[in-house]
Amino acid sequence: MNAHDILLRPAQQTDAWMLSAIHIAAIKALPTTLYTHEELLAWRNYREKPDAANILKHLQLETLWVAVKGDNVLGFTSYIIDELIALYVHPRYQGRGIGRALVEHFCEQARQQRLDKVITTASLYAEGFYLRLGFIPIQRAPHQLGKKIIVPVIKMSKELTAVQK
């Protein structure tokens, strides 16, 4: 399977449990090389099991898109106008172009709004991924997870080309 085998569509309320499961699985799969175990635990909101209601508190359904194959949700993204808020692909499906397809969709939506630049805040793990997609680092910054944990992240931006007619 590759990115050509998937469909991107707006998320639905019934996807929420799977979105939470993907969020947890993607963070659990990360090694403790760039963030500590405690920081990664906070990043997934101290959850071991999916919680559909909780994820919809943090991400608005109207700004969520999912990558699906058949009935299976493989990954998702959330964005608001020019800012990519979240991007997660289930570890089983990473490296197959799904994340790239979701980011390219976000960029295309921004182009259609006649925006010339988009931004995101990337984890240290995701910096290389975004660099390969044409994003450039702006600065390292602190990001608060929960009440007591602050982790380093990278603010990044990408210049967009005009919409082709």
Rank of each mutant, 00 (worst) to 15 (best):
Q60H: 09
Y79M: 07
N72K: 14
L41M: 14
R47L: 14
L64W: 12
R44C: 08
N72D: 09
A67H: 05
W43F: 12
T77M: 13
H37L: 15
I55C: 09
L40D: 07
Q60N: 10
N54C: 13
K69H: 12
L59Q: 05
N45H: 12
T77K: 10
R47N: 04
V73P: 00
S78P: 02
L56Y: 04
R44M: 12
A86W: 01
E39P: 01
W65A: 03
I81H: 15
R44Y: 07
I80P: 05
F76T: 07
V73L: 02
V66G: 10
A86E: 03
V68F: 00
L40F: 06
E39L: 04
I80T: 13
W43K: 12
N45F: 07
L59G: 03
A53I: 08
Q60D: 14
A86H: 06
Y79N: 06
W65K: 01
K49Y: 05
R47V: 00
V73C: 10
I85K: 14
I80M: 03
G75Q: 06
V73T: 04
T63R: 14
G70E: 13
A67D: 07
N45Q: 07
I55Y: 07
E48V: 05
I80E: 11
K57I: 05
R47Y: 05
A42N: 05
I55F: 12
L84M: 03
I80W: 04
A53V: 13
L74N: 11
V66P: 05
A52M: 11
K69A: 09
V66D: 08
Q60F: 13
G75L: 04
R47I: 00
N45Y: 09
L74Y: 06
S78I: 01
F76E: 09
R44K: 15
V68G: 02
A86N: 06
V66A: 08
D71Y: 03
E48A: 08
G70C: 03
D51Q: 03
K49G: 03
T77R: 09
E83K: 02
G70N: 12
D51K: 01
N72R: 11
V73Q: 03
W65D: 14
P50V: 12
N72F: 07
H58W: 11
A53H: 15
W43M: 04
E62H: 07
K49F: 06
H37I: 11
I80H: 15
L84S: 04
D51A: 11
V68C: 14
A52D: 15
K57A: 08
E38W: 02
Y46D: 10
Q60L: 01
N54I: 09
D71S: 12
K57L: 12
H58Q: 05
E62V: 02
P50K: 14
E38L: 10
Q60I: 03
A42S: 14
H37P: 09
L41G: 01
E38K: 11
